[in-house]
């Protein structure tokens, strides 16, 4: 059971860590000052979640690894984040769509995880849920405004939907890890989360006049450590300091 919980915490923690890092790339480059601050706040929330989740993962693993070692000293295939979060920022529409598809998944997931039989995980979920509610509100509002905005904003965010939608199946990946944890009441049924996600996406897209792509291209493998080429480059930058100056602190 311990290794299953460890694996599951890596999925949650790595999602927060990698998306937090991606969103942080906007710092100083936001389209307007207000949005620059909003994106940076979201990024900091996510990195804070990653800190709690990976810290707990290290404790569960029991091999003496702390959150920093897990964040900065693993190899690419040891990261269990979904493919969606490692995708490039692209334009603002792409970043917002990536965030929305992720938030719409994270929100019902944390809402369910606060009832986890694992009290530590439940506590982290409760804290993260408050942040995620705001992230969802922020990204959903933007999707609606960009989708139902000008001709150009509509075109651009529809393009973002078309290129990101194929990664959504990866969010709802489950295997024996989930089955075992579900039996213990530690994690919720993923199918219910998927349904809620679909409902949010449909509602927001209809208000935003956006279309779900008619093809059913799918790409997954993130939970098994099979990533797109973007993750390696992200890690190279994120891990540079810790690799160049082992054990450095600041």
């Amino acid at each position: 059971m311990k290794e299953h919980l460890f694996e599951y915490l890596l999925r949650l923690g790595d999602d927060s860590l990698i998306l937090g890092h991606r969103v942080s790339e906007w710092c100083g480059h936001g389209p307007i000052l207000e949005e620059d601050i909003a994106l940076t706040n979201i990024s900091l929330d996510l990195i804070g979640q990653a800190t709690s989740l990976l810290k707990y993962a290290g404790e569960v693993e029991g091999k003496g690894r702390d959150e920093d070692q897990l964040a900065f000293l693993r190899l690419e295939h040891d990261y269990k984040n979904c493919l969606l979060v490692e995708q490039l920022n692209g334009d603002f529409g792409m970043t917002i769509m990536r965030q929305f598809l992720f938030d719409a998944y994270r929100l019902p997931l944390f809402e369910a995880l606060i009832h986890s039989s694992d009290s530590q995980l439940a506590a982290i979920a409760e804290k993260s849920l408050k942040e995620t509610k705001y992230h969802y509100r922020h990204s959903a509002e933007w999707v609606i405004r960009l989708g139902d905005g000008t001709e150009e904003s509509h075109e651009r965010i529809q393009k973002a939907v078309n290129s990101l939608f194929k990664y959504h199946v990866d969010l709802f990946f489950t295997n024996h890890v989930d089955d075992a944890l579900l039996k213990e009441g530690i994690v919720p049924e993923m199918k219910a989360i998927h349904n809620k996600w679909m409902e949010s996406v449909k509602n927001v897209f209809s208000e935003a006049t956006l279309e779900i792509p008619s093809n059913n291209w799918e790409q997954s493998g993130g939970r098994l450590g099979r990533h797109s080429e973007h993750l390696g480059l992200l890690l190279a930058e994120m891990q540079y300091m810790q690799r160049a100056y082992p054990n450095m602190e600041w």
Binding site: L33, E34, E35, I37, A38, N41, Y134, E141, R145
Partner: peptide, 20 residues
């Protein structure tokens, strides 16, 4: 003061800019 597309977004921006 700040710039925003509409009132809802102005509240969100204000939350990020002035209450963090």
């Amino acid at each position: 003061s700040l710039r925003a597309a509409d009132a809802e977004m102005a509240i969100e921006n204000a939350r990020d800019v002035y209450t963090r």
